[in-house]
Design a protein around this nucleic acid. Structure first.
Lengths: 113, 113
DNA sequence: TTCAATATGTTGGTTGCCAATACATAGCAC
DNA sequence: GTGCTATGTATTGGCAACCAACATATTGAA
């Protein structure tokens, strides 16, 4: 997969990963990797700043967890985050429909005229 | 549609627009716009440098046309361009499958395990 | 005569992800 | 007891790719 593959879709991926319940950053990375069958390998330099930003903008909320001596920061969706996820899904469908209608018209039929 | 929507998929769009026959830059822009039902409005600052690059790398070939006093540069796919288009389609399907399996699992089933 | 459409191009800026780096705990193999 | 890997969070600097704005010219309609 060509460089910067998730560009523009990162927020949606992170929100979607958290839809099933709270996860910490590292677990989000592995969850995304597994759900995409290994295709998407998010980098820490990509994920942690993004999670931080999503919390700042109110789409996520975080709490610190302790497992023995180790600390993890656990993120969960807020109500606004759930709404944002729905919006990301809509945007994703519009996006794939738009690009697909030009690039791959057999698979993604043109929007009704 | 959020900013930079075509990022990473521009080459595929341009190649696909030319699959049906030669077109000049301005016509490519309107063709993409029409085929996407208005969703994709490519900018001249995006398209012309990209066409130039695709010609430099041998995926397109161009000839100057004259219509009255006006000059247009007509692009067409080379054989390499046709192969590149096929690759772009494959990459597009893999891309949508990967992102979709995380973001929109109901619509884009996970790749076979 | 002014405006919009047609037509091609360049320049500079921003965005957003990535690579590299840093650091700490935990568990396993040897 | 030492190293290696996995787990875990975070920052910094860089850069590619697209966009906005600008520049220029012809054509045709109001």
């Amino acid at each position: 997969m060509r460089g910067d593959p998730v560009r523009g879709h990162l927020d949606g991926l992170l929100l979607a990963a958290l839809e099933g319940g709270p996860l910490h950053g590292y677990a989000i990375i592995t969850a995304v990797q597994q759900r995409s069958a290994g295709a998407l390998e998010l980098r820490t330099g990509t994920v942690y700043p993004a999670l931080n930003r999503l919390e700042r903008t109110g789409l996520l909320r975080s709490t610190w967890e302790s497992v023995g001596e180790r600390r993890r920061r656990c993120y969960e969706l807020t109500d606004a985050g759930r709404r944002a996820l729905a919006d990301e899904r809509t945007a994703w469908r519009e996006f794939t429909s738009a690009i697909g209608s030009v690039l791959d018209p057999g698979r993604a039929p043109r929007p009704a005229t």
